[in-house]
Design a protein around this nucleic acid. Structure first.
Length: 559
DNA sequence: CCACCAATAT
DNA sequence: AATATTGGTG
């Protein structure tokens, strides 16, 4: 039969050699179609009457891959009979009839397509698509044996199948369809190359790949999973895979997959101390990702004439607040001196995270701590997208909006992940005022550490939320403190505050600020930033105090 | 080799 | 815009 293993080699030029049953009572039409098909190197067997065709397919059901059957007004019944008899054979009905109901009947009876005569070469050339379609989409396990080799062949062309079939099929790298028309062939070829859509193998946020058929199914698995992850409780370290065919071609080894792919983090429940918690389902997820990626990788290989190896994606770590929290926790735990990437990595216990990831993050973290991005300071306030805040006069203390977050949030030992690190100091008191090395308050907005839940907790006994009965103070003329401003729209929390909440918050803040100003000997409430040296001095001088002691509380204010 | 940093690439 | 990478330095 056609489809032995050895024949598979022949499929290198798929669909060359595809066997077509042509049933057409009109001999001239039949001859014409046959000629065209044969020019395209299909193998054509023609029949003039349906009975011959029927007996042919009934005696040797696997002889043909596709059938083209003419429908005429006179031969309806017979050809419908053929349709029924040839259920496993992708059958294209052709006719001079322009009759919708006839078309529908054909399709309803199982015809895969209805084409009007005369048949263009384009249509004929592409009839193989139905074969492939049937091979892949035949319901359940009912892939006709004649189609199995095709399916395997195509599958391996697409690098979708298991390694078995891949090994069995030294598959055409070039899916070349030889025919009279080179341009069209090229189109076909390119079309095939598009299957894997390797350039954007993975997209975030529900963006779907444009793809075909099985490829899409497999990719959708991944995508759906991703969506699920986003909605679900488990916040993963999102990774974006960037695929570049040119580089990193040889990295797909399975052993490496867990390394960089599917970096995960568990963060479901009480996450406070959760450096180590349930990894189980996460790992499972990783596996899913890995295998999906592998599939994609294989698929990507199609366009890669030189080899089977596949580009490997670099995973971009999404530093979610939770992940960052772990990071900061690790840094805190280690202390400033010990906080080097490798140890942080150890403490974080986030699988798949690399030292480089951590180092990179640490670098940025330190840079922010040192206020290397000075300009963000004030300008960023105006970046607030909250219209409520737009009208605040500049000096007005701005509230950080602690996300309502998990009320059951477990506080770490050193409760907070302060933006400036030195809050970890065991004797918090006045140190806050000095902020050695960090002359200004923290630029807010961008960084996740700006707004960790614990940050606003009352670690020092200062109520963050004053009693509700307190009268509203007027705004202090020149407050020299500032609350951290956590952007209420921070995507990380996905929580928008309504105006009521905003207003309330502002009022409360003002109260806190007033209290802090009036009692400078008390430690700053969490969330308050010490004033910069400059602002303190200028404020003092504005109030007529031109000389200050060079040292306050053991720390230098100025030289 | 590692950490750090700045610059640059993605 | 956020990360990753790279290249130089210690």
């Amino acid at each position: 039969m056609v489809c032995t293993a050895s024949d598979l080699q022949g499929w290198k030029d798929f669909p060359k050699g595809l066997r077509v049953l042509l049933l057409d009572g009109d001999s001239s039409s039949s001859a014409e179609i046959r000629t065209k098909l044969e020019e395209m190197e299909y193998v054509v067997v023609t029949y003039c009457n349906e009975n011959d065709a029927l007996s042919a397919i009934s005696s040797k059901p696997d002889t043909f891959h596709v059938a083209i059957v003419e429908v005429t007004t006179s031969s309806h019944d017979g050809n419908f009979k053929f349709l029924e008899a040839a259920k496993d054979l992708p059958t294209i009905m052709i006719s001079n009839i322009h009759c919708l109901s006839t078309m529908m009947k054909c399709i309803a009876l199982g015809a895969i397509e209805f084409l009007q005569k005369p048949l263009s070469e384009d249509k004929l050339r592409n009839i193989w698509q139905h074969v492939v379609h049937k091979a892949f989409n035949a319901g359940g396990s009912a892939v006709p044996s004649s189609l199995k080799p095709i399916k395997e062949s195509v599958a391996s062309i697409l690098h979708l199948e298991s390694e078995n079939s891949e090994n069995d099929n030294p598959v055409p790298k070039e899916l070349e369809i030889s025919s009279s028309d080179d341009d069209n062939d090229r189109e076909l070829l390119e079309g095939s190359d598009k299957y894997p859509a390797p350039s954007t193998p993975q997209q975030k946020h529900g963006m779907r790949l444009v793809d075909d058929g099985d490829c899409q199914d497999q990719l959708n698995c991944l995508l759906e999973k991703e969506c699920a992850e986003q909605d679900g409780e488990s916040k993963s370290v999102e990774t974006t895979c960037i695929n570049s065919l040119g580089e990193g071609i040889s990295q797909v080894e399975n052993t490496q997959l867990p390394d960089k792919e599917g970096i995960k983090e568990e963060e479901n429940s009480a996450d406070g101390c959760g450096a180590a918690s349930n990894d189980d389902h996460e790992i499972h997820d990783q596996d899913i990702i890995s295998s999906s990626e592998e599939n994609k990788s294989k698929a990507c290989g199609l366009g890669n004439s030189s080899g089977t190896k596949v580009s490997r994606k670099k995973m971009k770590v999404d530093w979610t607040p939770e992940l960052h929290r772990k990071f900061v926790q690790a840094v805190e735990q280690l202390g400033v001196n010990q906080a080097i990437p490798s140890r942080i990595l150890e403490l974080m216990k986030v699988e798949g995270l690399t030292r480089h990831n951590v180092a990179s993050h640490l670098q940025k973290y330190r840079m922010h701590k040192r206020h290397i991005l000075p300009k963000q300071d004030d300008s960023s306030w105006s970046h607030s997208k909250d219209p409520m805040r737009k009208n605040c006069y500049p000096q007005r203390p701005v509230m950080a909006f602690p996300p309502p977050y998990h009320s059951n949030h477990v506080m770490p030992v050193a409760p907070i992940y302060p933006p400036w690190g030195h809050m970890a100091c065991p004797s918090p008191s006045v140190q806050m005022w000095v902020s050695p090395g960090y002359p200004s308050w923290q630029p807010q907005e961008i960084w996740p550490w700006k707004s960790y839940p614990g940050m606003y907790a009352d670690a020092w006994g200062c109520p963050v939320t004053p009693p509700p009965h307190s009268p509203l103070p007027s705004h202090p003329p020149q407050p020299i403190f500032r609350f951290e401003n956590a952007d209420a729209h921070d995507k990380s929390y996905g929580i928008a505050f309504n105006p009521m909440e905003l207003q309330l918050a502002d009022e409360e803040i003002d109260k806190v600020v007033i209290e802090a100003i009036s009692k400078p000997w008390l430690p700053l409430p969490l969330g308050l930033k010490p004033p910069s040296t400059e602002s303190v001095l200028s404020e003092l001088s504005r109030q007529g105090i031109s000389t200050v002691p060079s040292q306050i509380n053991g720390s230098k204010l100025l030289q």
